[in-house]
Amino acid sequence: MSTGILVLVEHLKGTMADITFEMLGVGRKVAAAQGGQVHAVLLGKNVAALATRLGAADSVLLADEPSLEQSSAEVIVPLLQQLMAQKQASLVLLGGTNASFGLGVQLSARMKVPFVNFCKGARVEGGSLVLTSQLFSGKILSDVKLADGKGIVSIYPGAFPAEAGRSDKTPPVEKVAVPPGSPKVVFKRYIEPDTSDVDITKQSVLVAVGRGIQNADNISLAEDLAKTLGGAVCASRPVIDQGWLPLSRQVGKSGMSVAPKLYLALGISGAPEHCEGMKGAQLIVAINTDPKAPIFDVAHYGANADCLEIIELLKEAVEKKKTK
């Protein structure tokens, strides 16, 4: 059995993403149980300097070219396919991020090996790799077995310890050539988030509203409460998608990562894509009518209540405390 493991390094605008270390940690764990080498695949424009941080890998496979800035699946997939063959790799770890979206699927179709999405647990059991995935917004877990350890796995951000993938060692770097081509998907530019209204990453108190806030008119209630608490309002994706608040207020996978002193989650179910952006908050208080909502697993305090009722009452209670 070939046991090379490829890890596709994630970085955005010159900054290494934590998911890279999380994946390297998983790679090391599997290699420790099954043997084999871990190769970090580093692709992009002006990225060579990042290689020194990949010491947890046995080697870094580097392609540093202007054309690789945010290159799409049609460039990356054939390259990974070529590296899998070269390194006799049977396992490829990708970040479960927007950046890597779709790569695993296409690679698996080409290599005719399974693709496993949303992976948040991995263990080696009698020669097979057993992977746990979370489905239905984190409400159901499912175990699948990769017989002979072959597959492409998308690793859920934040599910594995990043520490396990950090090392001070300097890994050997091997350059890889990118086959020429004229891609049909061409990267043009980055569009920075517009934080001209409020930068939610700089607020120490956030009142976060989810679909449970029910309609646009109720947003102003949350805004009044935020004002009383000395903070701002942010939201889950459906609220932004409805146009009730601007994109700059979105917390989560595609939105901002925030770590305020207080995160008051009102009518938010706690989907993994949302929690990714707020689990670092110092104090999380969740109000939700569903006692089984996953948000109660990340919150410090919670209450089963109608958030619309609590908003008004809490505002009064806080005002009372302040005047005392």
């Binding site: 980055y190 569009i191 979105q250």
Partner: peptide, 11 residues
């Protein structure tokens, strides 16, 4: 992408 960053692509 993450952090509210978006990329523009021509397809």
């Amino acid at each position: 992408f993450s952090g509210g960053m978006r990329g523009e692509f021509e397809v």
